[in-house]
Design a protein around this nucleic acid. Sequence first.
DNA 1: CCGCGTCTGTCAGCTTGCTGTCAGCTTCGT
DNA 2: ACGAAGCTGACAGCAAGCTGACAGACGCGG
Lengths: 219, 219
Amino acid sequence: MRALAVEDDPRIAADLEAALNAAGFRVESTGDGEDAWFLGDTEDYDLVVLDLGLPGLDGLAVLKRWRANGRAMPVLVLTARGTWQERVEGIEAGADDYLPKPFRMEELVARARALVRRAGGHAAALQEAGLLSLDTNRMGVAVRGVPIKVTALEYRLLAYLMQYRDRPVPPTELLEHLYGDDDAREANALEAVIARLRRKLGPGVIGTRRGFGYFLEQP
Amino acid sequence: MRALAVEDDPRIAADLEAALNAAGFRVESTGDGEDAWFLGDTEDYDLVVLDLGLPGLDGLAVLKRWRANGRAMPVLVLTARGTWQERVEGIEAGADDYLPKPFRMEELVARARALVRRAGGHAAALQEAGLLSLDTNRMGVAVRGVPIKVTALEYRLLAYLMQYRDRPVPPTELLEHLYGDDDAREANALEAVIARLRRKLGPGVIGTRRGFGYFLEQP
DNA sequence: CCGCGTCTGTCAGCTTGCTGTCAGCTTCGT
DNA sequence: ACGAAGCTGACAGCAAGCTGACAGACGCGG
C-alpha cells in the first residue's frame, strides 16, 4: 500500500507519516503544492492525504487538477478551518473523505483504512524486519513467529524503529517521538526501555550503532 | 452501529430516534436536507433512515447525490405520499428499502435490522468470540450458551468490541463510539460499564491490555 | 402526580504493573 | 588509558485501571 501525504506543517507531517506508516502504508511526503500535484499525477497511490492550506498551489486546485486528469485514487482532505462551506467545496472538488483539524491520528487512520477498503485494496497489517514482525492491527509483536508481550511504550518504540528500519535512529529523535520535546526526560529513560525490550525479545533484534542510534537488525 | 435519522417532523423524529436507539443504534438526527446530505457524505453510518418530504433540499436529491459520490450505506426511505410512482423513484435513486407513512415503529426497526444485516456483510445474526455470543437480531447476549441480560449501553459496548474483535479497542475510541465526542464523559464512566459487564459475564470474556484497550478474549 | 425500580455517571479508595531515576558498570573510540 | 556513550538491575513513584457505593435521571405502572 502506497500513500502520499501532502502537508506543509512539518510537525503534523511527521506525525502523519508515522501514523500511516504504522498502519502499514509506504508513505511519501511533500509540503509543496506543485510537487504534490506532480507526484499525484504521475505516480500510483492507494491513498492520498491532502492538506488544503498549502503555500504555493492550493490544495483544492491540486485535487481538481488530478480529477480533471482522470486520477481516481482515494483522497482524504484535511483542513484547519472546518467551515461548512469549505467542506462542501472539498467534497465537490472530488475528495472522498474530509477531516477537520485538529483531529486524532487514530481517527485519520481509521478513515484512511475505510477509504482504501472501499476502493478495493487491503492494507497490509504485518510489517517485518529481520526476526521481528509487528502486527499493526492487533498491536502485536513476534520474534521468529513467537508472540511476545510488550507494553504500549515499548510497542511505540518498536513501531518507530520499524518505520525507519533502513537507518539508525538517534536517541534524541526517539526521545522526542516517545515523549514530546516539551517535557524533558533523561536520556537514560530510553536506555532503560531498550534494555527491557532486549531482554524480552532476545539478541539479534535491536542493534546499536554507537554515536548514531538504534536500529532493527536485518539479515 | 451508527444510524442517521433524517426527518423534519420533530415528533416523528423523536420516536424514530427512540426506537432506533432501543434497537441498539447510536442515532444522529437532523431535519434539514443540506445537513443530511453533508453528514451522509462525510460520516460513516451503518444505516440511514430518510424522509422524503424535507424542507430545503429534497430527500430524493440527497439520496441521489450520496449515491453519485459512491456512498453505499443502506438507506431506508420514508414517505408520506405512498404512491406507486414515488416508490419506484425512490428505489431507482438508490434506496434499499421503502416504508410508507404511517408505519409502526416495530416494522421500521425490523426492516432496518434486515437491511443492516444484509449490507453489513455479517449476514449471520449470531456473532461469536470466545465464550461470548451476540444475537444481533434480538440484542441478546450469551456466555457459554447461557443467556444474560444486558442493558442497551452494555450491548452497544459488546457489539463494538465484537465488530473489532481482532484488535484491542482503546478507551478513547470506545468513549467516542458510546457517547459521541460532543458530550465529554469521564473516562471512568467506561470503566464502570466494563466492571458491571464483567460481573455479569464472568471471567474470561472481556480482557484488558493496559495501554492498548479492551478486547474480547478468544481461545 | 406519585412511588418504584432500573440504568448509569461520578466519586473515592484501592490494586497493579509500567516506567523514570539512580548508581554502578561495561564497551567503544580515539 | 581515558572519557564518553551505552548497559543493567534495583527500586520507588505514579498512572491506568478496578470496584463498591451512591445518587440523579429516567421510564413505568398505578
